[in-house]
Design a protein around this nucleic acid. Structure first.
Length: 460
RNA sequence: GGCCGGAUGGCAGAGUGGUCAUGCAGCGGACUGCAACUCCGUGAACGCCGGUUCGAUUCCGACUCCGGCCUCCA
């Protein structure tokens, strides 16, 4: 029995798909004008793990995640770079894909782009106009009439009147009401634009998601997800548009992941305190980032720092060490670990508990290594299978532990030569020389591990 | 001002009305030439004040502090 925390109700609810055995999930993707930062990584990884587990439960999942490739920020950035918006977005989409694959995500089933759904967007705007939920302002822009939708604010527990008290909403004279938002925006000269009944222009930010989600998954679907900063206004506006246009319930379960923080502040573009995925990958194996994300529950805020990354690295090393030089059974009988893992994941995707089960499994695996090799092989297989659901432990243990992604430092040949020399010294009981070599390597971040089978090493 | 979260051992991070989280770090031991890895054992926590209860870290209320949203942001 899967339970999911629903932002709409503020509670964990038992998950029940609209159609037996099938799940439709739409996740808001990125606006592609810059490289992904760690906050984007968290959202992408969270919903990747969620999608894996939904499939693991046997559901036929259709996972759709959009790409926003038309937007004010894109136009601005392209101008600054002196390139076309298309060149910019194509570059960023490729970069995002590369980052994501390195982070170990599986791609969504479909990644619709806003520019590919222009007709559907225009159709939806027209329907909203026809039904009286939209109007064309004096500027020529088409706006959504927020107070025409009686449930406006239901996702965020907000009332239109209360929002006015905030008084931070710019009063655009073209709007009837400050909370109204743009559906279709008139193009300025030279801006990328599409023809529409209201002239050359482009869609507002929110309408594209309503149009794409309802066209890809139907007007009523199971799960809609996104980052924490999308709750308002983006998702609120999506609900308003979609439900007004279709006259049906839009989404059953709204899911939002928690923020990534830096020094106790949200990591965000506007604060400028963000780290891009590719920056971090210069210093850390991509799986360390993934482990960091998965080691707390997807809704909790997570703190980003060198310290938290280092702690993630150490934890992951323990997991990989258990698989080092360990053969893996081709099949195995699932044990209580699988059951506990699944129970944890079924409780609103409780990955930290799932990870703790992995550690307990590892302890038993390490114990079994000497006394019960067959059991060890089976447990290793079970470990790999469970970790795979989190997207972890897919690398060769030696590869991960020797940190082969880093180019700096001694190469493997030099390390091996020193290890061979040390092995000889140990045979000769020349421990002074042996320790000297070990210290020398340690100074370069290479740790040695002696065992009956020989000496292995780990780069820290 | 409105709405929503959170406060757990040295750190990270789950969870529960009465008994174990887990990882890192610490301490003691085994293993080792010495280490490392690993294993065994071990100390350590539930912001503050009331209430409900036989019993509350867990439920309820007030308070303090922290974060998020209310403007583009995953």
């Amino acid at each position: 029995m899967l339970k999911i925390y629903n932002t709409l109700s503020g509670k964990k609810e038992i998950f029940k798909p609209i159609e037996e055995g099938k799940v439709g999930m739409y996740v808001c993707g990125n606006t592609v004008y810059d490289f992904c930062h760690i906050g984007h990584a968290r959202a992408m990884i969270s919903f990747d793990v969620i999608s894996r587990f939904i499939r693991h439960l046997g559901y036929e999942l259709n996972y759709v995640r959009n790409i926003t490739d038309v937007d004010d920020k894109i136009i601005k950035r392209a101008e600054e770079n002196n390139e076309s918006t298309q060149a910019l977005t194509e570059r960023m989409i490729a970069a995002q894909r590369e980052d994501e694959l390195r982070l170990g995500n599986k791609m969504p089933d479909r990644e619709p782009k806003a520019t590919e759904f222009m007709q559907e967007i225009i159709d939806m705007v027209q329907i909203l106009l026809d039904k009286g939920f939209a109007y064309q302002g004096s500027s020529g822009d088409v706006y959504y009439r927020a107070n025409a939708f009686k449930d406006y604010g239901k996702l965020n527990n907000r009332k239109l009147e209360d929002m006015l008290a905030g008084a931070r909403i710019d009063v655009e004279t073209a709007k009837e009401h400050p909370a109204d938002f743009v559906l279709w925006k008139q193009a300025k000269v030279g801006e990328v634009a599409w023809p529409s009944p209201w002239g050359l222009g482009r869609p507002g930010w929110h309408i594209e998601c309503s149009a794409m989600s309802t066209n890809c998954l139907g007007s009523h679907f199971d799960i809609h997800g996104g980052g924490p900063d999308l709750k308002f206004p983006h998702h609120e506006n999506e609900i308003a548009q979609s439900e007004a246009a279709t006259g049906k319930d839009y989404v059953n379960y709204w899911m939002h992941c928690g923020a990534v923080r830096v020094n106790n502040e949200k990591m965000s573009k506007s604060l400028g305190n963000f780290f891009t995925v590719r920056d971090v990958l210069e210093k850390y194996n991509a799986e360390v980032i993934r482990y960091l994300m998965v080691s707390s529950q997807y809704r909790s805020p997570i703190d980003y720092s060198d310290q938290s990354l280092n702690e993630a690295k150490v934890g992951l090393e323990r997991l990989y060490t258990a698989l080092r030089q360990q053969s893996i059974a081709e099949s195995y009988q699932a044990t209580e670990y699988t059951q506990r893992f699944e129970e944890a994941m079924s409780d609103d995707f409780n990955t930290p508990v799932a990870v703790s089960v992995l550690f307990e499994l590892v302890r038993e695996l390490n114990k079994a290594k000497t006394e019960a090799p067959a059991k060890a092989e089976a447990l290793a297989a079970e470990l790999k299978t469970l970790a795979e659901l989190l997207g972890l432990l897919h690398q060769a243990p030696e590869y991960f532990l020797q940190n082969s992604t880093l180019s700096e430092g001694l190469d493997e040949k030099a390390i091996q030569a020193l290890i061979d020399e040390r092995t000889q010294a140990r045979k000769d009981k020349n421990f002074a020389r042996s320790d000297e070599i070990r210290d020398e390597l340690a100074a370069q971040g290479i740790e040695l591990l002696d065992s009956r089978e020989g000496t292995t090493w780990t780069r820290s």
